[in-house]
Design a binder for these strands. Structure first.
Lengths: 334, 334
DNA sequence: GAAACTATTGTTAACGTGTGCATATATGTG
DNA sequence: CACATATATGCACACGTTAACAATAGTTTC
């Protein structure tokens, strides 16, 4: 069926060993022989059988890119940027295998032989099981987006606690004191970090948050919408709401306008993530940008370093977040 | 290093062939022998080497999922839904390899041996080269999202022309006659189809579109924003604008509010795609929904059928789009 | 009781590639 | 000229798995 190095060997009148060496540009082979073989290979439209290569070289040329889930709770923009970042680094040296961790029934199929390295974009503590499994098997691994202390594992993430602190501080600086919080999806580390940073800001400025100013959320539009409705129904409404991601902020803004009110005049809103549409909603959303694409690039880069140099670096890299001020927060101080 | 069937064979006191058969549940092997071997395999934490399997079985267990581009012009939501749809169908029978077609320097590495099947989510006529290459190699292929006539290729897409026709007709039914168009990215088939459907509606109701009511677009927020600015600067402004996707519609709405005007009171806007945020912007966007996740599911399903039953169906499946009426269009007829 | 059959397991080769070692030829060295 | 040395190629095996065929033992058939 398809052309093999033996077919080429026959045509070139050499052994298949010579063909193999020639196509791998081995210094053992004479330059003109190489060239002759290359031309024949080209003419025969040869392309190597990667299964055979993998078998003998003990490298799969596969890179796993695993998300906590593909079904729900992962925002499209997040997903897209992560894949794009990794993809831009690996080019065509590796094949990128995308998977949701919650799709795995067992981790049996994850072996050294089937993955040269793995990138986990982790959003939940529950990913620890697969992280342990992979680390145990000795497969080079980088965990993105969530802090992890497993030894021998690379870790790249943004400092979300700091980002939320920025957002909280900003609201206070603008003169707000009645500040509410819509939390992220329970069990997601990011939800915890963002809440922590926000609360640190409140504490630093000695502002207390009554329990009616806290609502749980699911990182989706609907939950932001519901939470804001609750806030608006209060006798003493908050003057500002910090939403743990942009989607919930969007839902919240929707609830405001449905109530016949306006952002930011009646109530201020801050988001988190700086998703593509944040700049284009009305009013444009003030939010915290975290460098997802950069995280995944740095992560992929370091992983490749570990794979190809057989080294074993395990540093943790923390990338700074940034407050993007737009129009959704009103200044009360002036 | 890792456990092979030969290691198991030694421990079980049988030949490696027997182990292979036992683990593949061959009827040739005695039931108790099978069970004994299964237990030993389990204890030794055996997992098969897929490269070796692939080599001898001539199946890679890889499915390619190729997008026209991962860099630009593919919206995050589109990307996400497509992957999710395909992923939900293949479960863990195959590995999903995601790639941007424009990342390929050559198609050399795409062979029967490295992909059991390929799904192309095509957004441009320029993908024809890779489609031909794959069809030529005899690899089972399904092309999603764009019509294709190559023989032996499955094709699943939504009827975008019909969707745009719905949108155009709806505007007219609401009493609009001065209707403008922001086009999609040049070279993308969808851009052509949407324009065609829109124009068919205009023609049917004998409405003509002056050339100043047409602006090119790039499917992104910025181009929608710019185009709307142009429309607003006209002496005789349109009363409604059909944007060839939601992102441009969002940009357009932004331009309206920047000009101190309001959607839909001053000008109506219709989008296309029904992206997640369409329902949550203010005002909620009237748009056309195309069933991307369903398209990718159906496509994956049919591809697997062709692969696993070695059949060769090549039907074209056209899924209906749907107009989602929300709040961004004003009725002029009342 | 020999022949034919069945059930179970083993032997061997094959998939396509890379590599250690042997071989052959050309080149230099004293 | 004999010997060492460098250069270029081939031989044989390995990687881990499956499968065609062979072999063995037990069972049925007439």
């Amino acid at each position: 069926m398809s052309v093999t190095i033996k077919d080429i060997a026959k045509l070139a009148g050499v052994s298949h060993t010579t063909v193999s060496r020639a196509l791998n540009n081995s210094p053992l082979i004479q330059e003109e022989t190489k060239e002759r073989i290359r031309i024949i290979a080209e003419q025969m439209d040869y392309s190597p059988n990667f299964s055979a290569k993998s078998l003998v070289l003990d490298r799969s040329y596969n890179l796993g890119l695993f998300f906590t889930t593909l079904s729900n709770g992962t925002s499209a923009g997040f997903f897209y940027e992560a894949i794009r970042g990794v993809n831009s680094v690996i080019q065509d040296r590796y094949q990128l295998i995308v998977k949701g961790i919650d799709d795995y029934t067992g981790f049996h199929s994850i072996t050294r032989k089937s993955f040269d390295g793995i990138i986990i974009v982790s959003q939940s503590d529950e990913d620890q099981a697969i992280i342990d499994h992979i680390a145990n098997k000795g497969i080079p691994l980088v965990v993105l987006n969530r802090p992890v202390t497993t030894t021998g594992v690379l870790n790249v993430l943004s400092d979300e606690e700091q980002g939320a602190f920025l957002a909280g501080s900003y609201l206070i600086e603008q003169g707000h004191t009645r500040i509410a919080l819509i939390e992220g999806r329970q069990g997601f580390k990011s939800a915890q970090n963002r809440k922590d940073g926000f609360e640190r800001a409140m504490k630093q400025f000695q502002i207390t948050i009554p329990s009616v100013y806290r609502m749980p959320g699911l990182y989706d539009l609907e939950s932001g919408h519901r939470a804001m409705q609750k806030f608006l129904a209060l006798d003493e409404r908050p003057t500002a709401v910090f939403c743990c991601n942009d989607e919930m902020a969007l839902g919240a803004m929707k609830a405001v306008s449905e109530a016949g009110m306006h952002v930011p005049n009646d109530i201020s809103v801050v988001g988190f993530d700086d998703t593509v549409f944040a700049a284009f909603v009305t009013p444009a959303l003030t939010t915290v940008r975290r460098p997802i694409e950069q995280i995944s690039k740095e992560g992929a880069l370091r992983l490749l370093g570990n794979i190809e140099n057989k080294q074993h670096e395990t540093e943790q890299l923390l990338l700074k977040t940034e407050l993007i001020v737009r129009e959704s927060v009103r200044s009360l101080s002036s």
